[in-house]
């Protein structure tokens, strides 16, 4: 539920339906640390052998503390924007929520299995778009009938075939925008409890961005929670009513879109 509209709904909610705020993601003092092996030191064969013989770990294991002590609760039906400058830890946070990165300390609890759509989350590049739609659907746990029923919708939504018969070509022949559109269309065909989109729409054209924003709003209505990472403040404003602002791994601010974006724009001097 929207933080924004929470104010107006407070009167009705206070007495009765507080239960409507069902949490879907709970992050509890989450810390994520990357360990980079062999960041320095000699990379030649002799050095590698000497390390193995002496049973040393790679020389200088560098640690990157990418997410620091982040806590938040996301609710059903919310669309949450995630902003911050490059390298502030947005992608890392989403990967940890999706269970793709282990937490150093703290925990993330989720409702079901969150799905993460990343920038370069290639599916099966050497297979045709058609195969990707079918296999992607099956992998997400859809039945064959469901996919058959939705196949045309998925292809139409992606708009891949607008410029000719591209759906029967291998996905490696797609432009980056086309690939991103197809990936989003496949993932969006199913209703998700938690869907996280990490700049996956950034390469899409204006028309597709509009269309996918509409789909995100729909997914929210289907009682899901959507996270959206974008450097385009307008698309955050259009889709999200709550925004998390990360900077250097810490959660600087968490609140209604307008206020957080205003503060963010002031900070980044826009």
């Amino acid at each position: 539920m929207a933080e924004q509209s929470a104010v107006t709904e407070a009167s009705t909610a206070a007495g009765t339906a507080v239960g409507a705020r069902v949490p879907t993601v709970v992050a509890d003092r989450l810390n994520v640390v990357y360990r980079v092996h062999g960041g320095g030191g000699k990379g030649n064969a002799v050095a590698a052998l000497r390390r193995i013989v002496r049973r040393q770990k790679s020389p200088n294991v560098r640690e990157v503390h990418a997410v620091k002590d982040v806590s938040f609760v996301a609710y059903r039906g919310e669309a949450i924007g995630l902003i911050g400058t490059n390298g502030s830890g947005k992608s890392t946070l989403l990967k940890a929520v999706a269970g793709l990165l282990p937490a150093e300390s703290g925990k993330v609890y989720t409702d079901g299995q969150p799905s993460l759509l990343g920038v370069n989350a290639a599916l099966m590049n050497d297979l045709t778009g058609e195969r990707n739609v079918i296999l992607g659907g099956l992998a997400m746990g859809m039945s064959q009938e469901e996919i058959r029923a939705k196949y045309q919708d998925i292809v139409d939504f992606s708009g891949i075939n607008e410029k000719g018969d591209f759906i029967s070509l291998p996905m490696r022949t797609y432009s980056s925008g086309m690939a991103a559109r197809l990936r989003f269309s496949i993932a969006a065909a199913k209703s998700h409890d938690v869907l996280m989109i990490d700049e996956a729409l950034a390469t899409g054209d204006r028309k597709f961005q509009k269309r996918s924003e509409a789909r995100i709003r729909e997914l929210r209505k289907e009682a899901g929670t959507v996270f959206l990472v974008s450097h385009n403040n307008k698309s955050i404003r259009d889709t999200c009513e709550r925004v998390l602002w990360l900077e250097k791994g810490t959660l600087v601010m968490d609140g209604p879109t307008d206020e957080v974006l205003k503060a963010y724009e002031k900070e980044t001097g826009k």
């Binding site: 709904e9 609760v73 600087v252 209604p256 206020e259």
Partner: peptide
Amino acid sequence: MSTVSDTTHGDAATAAASPVTSPD
């Protein structure tokens, strides 16, 4: 529910934070 680490923006975030008192 809001986490505010930056005091300068604190007012904005807390304002939105707890209009609803919930048993949770």
